[in-house]
């Protein structure tokens, strides 16, 4: 085993731990590759957003934000998130309760169906509602007769957002609640608590950080969704434009400062989301352990 040709001398003389790590040169090269890649693909786009937003100074930035249509877009984005996130929150808790606390036939198939929106293009998520409620659809004439407006209005935007963010809370909670089992709930029930008391005082405290984690991701996507919302919104300025859609309109009008000003608000929101997410992972890692990774 001491053939100097096959086993170069430096291996024998190096520190014993060398065998299970890379040599310093390889290590430096890998780190340079990783950092270079992340700097070009993640950091630069983020920096550019803020650089462009403030390129004409802070006054121009606030002027761009404090514009009627921009404020309307911010309000609409908040409204859509305030409606769609709680809907998916209730669904996520209900689905996770049924799936994690009970054994029944077809459970795996149900989980697959819940994940379905993740494998559908956002554009198609919007398209399905256009086909369902559009003038050429079965429901279209009936809706028109009764004066119900869904497409190119807030209800359509909410529906498309709900579709796209559908799995977020459920898929955080399902593995978490499966891991926690049913022991705590059985104990509470045997001590005389009813179903609601068990949920509020036993289950909810167990899942609260995982739930918050799911809501955080759900909200980020709800406020940032572009493709699905773009198809159903109709792009009416000041009425059906969410923030991401408003970014597009401003950008296409060569209003770079305006587009990037609104974009920087969304980027700030993304950064806040990342910070909160990281804090949750660091602080309550064990309580949301089953949720790491996507």
């Amino acid at each position: 085993m001491a053939d100097p040709e096959l086993y170069p001398a430096d291996i024998h003389h190096e520190h014993a731990s060398l065998a299970v790590t890379e040599r310093p040169l390889a290590r430096a090269a890998l780190m340079a590759l990783a950092f270079g890649f992340l700097a070009i693909f993640l950091l630069l786009p983020l920096v550019v957003v803020f650089e462009q937003a403030f390129s004409r100074g802070i006054g121009a930035f606030f002027e761009a934000i404090n514009e009627h249509d921009t404020l309307a877009a911010i309000r609409l984005t908040l409204l859509v998130a305030v409606i769609s996130v709680p809907l998916n929150l209730v669904f996520g808790v209900a689905a996770a309760w049924a799936i994690a606390k009970f054994e029944f036939k077809g459970k795996a198939f149900l989980i697959t169906l819940i994940d379905l929106p993740f494998s559908v293009s956002p554009v198609i998520s919007g398209l399905v509602y256009v086909l369902l409620f559009g003038t050429a659809s079965l429901l279209g004439p009936w809706l028109k007769l009764h004066g119900i407006v869904i497409l190119f209005a807030v209800p359509g935007i909410v529906l498309a957002t709900v579709f796209v963010t559908f799995p977020f809370v459920a898929r955080e909670l399902i593995p978490l609640m499966q891991e926690q089992g049913t022991g705590d709930e059985e104990a509470a029930l045997s001590l005389g608590a009813n179903g609601w008391q068990t949920f509020w005082h036993v289950t909810l405290p167990n899942i609260k950080w995982g739930l918050l984690y799911g809501v955080l991701l759900c909200n980020a996507r709800a406020m940032g969704e572009f493709g699905a919302v773009s198809v159903v919104s109709g792009h009416i300025r000041g009425l059906t434009n969410t923030m991401p859609l408003h970014v597009e309109i401003l950008y296409n009008e060569y209003n770079a400062v305006g587009a990037f000003a609104v974009a920087s608000v969304l980027a700030g929101l993304a950064l806040v989301t990342l910070v909160l997410k990281t804090l949750l992972e660091l602080r309550y890692g064990a309580e949301i352990a089953a949720t790491r990774g996507h």
Partner: peptide, 14 residues
């Protein structure tokens, strides 16, 4: 995780 959190339109124009 930035690409998960950053709205796609923002990434697009950036």
């Amino acid at each position: 995780d930035l690409p998960f959190a950053l709205p796609t339109a923002v990434a697009g124009i950036a």
